[in-house]
Amino acid sequence: MLVSQASSHGVELREGSRLRPIYDERGTFLGNDVVPMGWYAKGPDGGKAATADVVRKAMTPAPVDTIEEWLAELSVITARRAEDEFTGALRVDAYSRRLAGYPADVVKAALFDSKWKFWPTWAELAEVCDKAVAKRKAMAAALDGKDAARAASMAGEEHPERVSATRAAEIMAAAGFKPRTFGGEA
């Protein structure tokens, strides 16, 4: 959704990635894994500013009382150990204060889209929320120009280190390497 909103402001917002080879314990190549390398934004400054506003709005947290309602609902649909009223109120207060630092949709998704069999620990919830909000934070940094070096490198050629076969042969010859063929020397 945020990428399409960027496009409507004339901004290309793109996530960069690189391939990382995967090998088993014997060194056999198993394939590649896509590793995200961050986001970059390309377009007019006005469009970037407007898109940054949209991203910031998408970071708006829910009111604490709404989060407390969601936590109360979660407590009814998950298994948890018996506790007294004070401990329950303390748990809801501690979780709601921490969850108030995340966007509303991220909190609601973390609580209800994940199929919690038992009441989640704070570490479990924080992991889900952090993963969901990381992309938005990276987008905001790209739009604000805070990651300019990475953006510049990603906006350039796809494979700047590639050279033609002729140029590679010239480099090798200049370094003193002599090409060999299966039938002897070239």
Rank of each mutant, 00 (worst) to 15 (best):
D24E: 05
T166V: 09
F118W: 02
G16K: 10
T166H: 12
R162F: 10
V128A: 04
I67Y: 06
L71R: 07
T51I: 04
A134T: 08
E170R: 15
A140N: 10
L30E: 12
A62R: 05
Y95G: 00
G10L: 06
Y40W: 13
V34L: 11
L125K: 03
A109W: 10
A109P: 03
Y102H: 06
K117L: 08
P61M: 05
R136L: 00
A49Y: 09
A134R: 15
I67C: 03
R20G: 08
A49T: 15
V35G: 09
E158V: 11
F118D: 10
L30D: 10
L125Q: 00
P160L: 03
V64I: 15
V128I: 08
L99W: 03
F118Y: 07
A140E: 05
G31W: 01
K42C: 09
E170L: 13
A142G: 00
N32Y: 13
R136Y: 01
E83T: 12
G31Y: 01
A126R: 07
D45L: 12
G176E: 03
A100F: 09
E83F: 08
A49S: 12
A168W: 13
R167T: 14
V128F: 02
P61C: 08
A126V: 04
V35A: 08
E161G: 03
V163C: 06
A134D: 06
G183M: 11
K131Y: 05
T87W: 11
F86K: 15
M139L: 05
A58T: 12
A151G: 14
A126M: 04
T28K: 13
A89L: 14
W119D: 07
G183L: 15
A109S: 15
E25H: 12
A126F: 01
S96R: 01
T166Y: 11
P44G: 13
T78K: 13
L74A: 11
T181I: 08
V163D: 03
A155I: 06
L13A: 08
A62I: 11
K48T: 09
D84M: 07
A110V: 01
S4F: 05
F29V: 05
P61W: 01
A110G: 00
A148E: 10
T60M: 05
A142P: 02
I77Y: 06
D24A: 11
W39G: 02
F86R: 15
F118I: 02
V163G: 04
T28A: 09
L125M: 01
E170N: 13
L143W: 00
A109T: 11
L111F: 03
A148K: 09
K131P: 02
F118K: 12
D93Y: 07
C129M: 03
A50G: 04
L111T: 04
V92G: 10
W122Q: 10
D113N: 09
M172D: 10
V64L: 12
D53I: 06
P36F: 09
S4L: 07
E158F: 02
Y23Q: 11
M139D: 00
A175R: 14
D144W: 03
T60K: 10
E15C: 13
V133M: 06
F29M: 12
N32F: 09
H9Y: 15
S4M: 07
K115I: 01
A141N: 03
L99I: 00
W116Q: 01
R98A: 15
A174C: 04
K108L: 08
A132K: 11
A138M: 11
I77T: 15
A41N: 07
G43I: 04
P120R: 02
D147M: 07
A142F: 04
A169G: 05
M59T: 03
S8D: 13
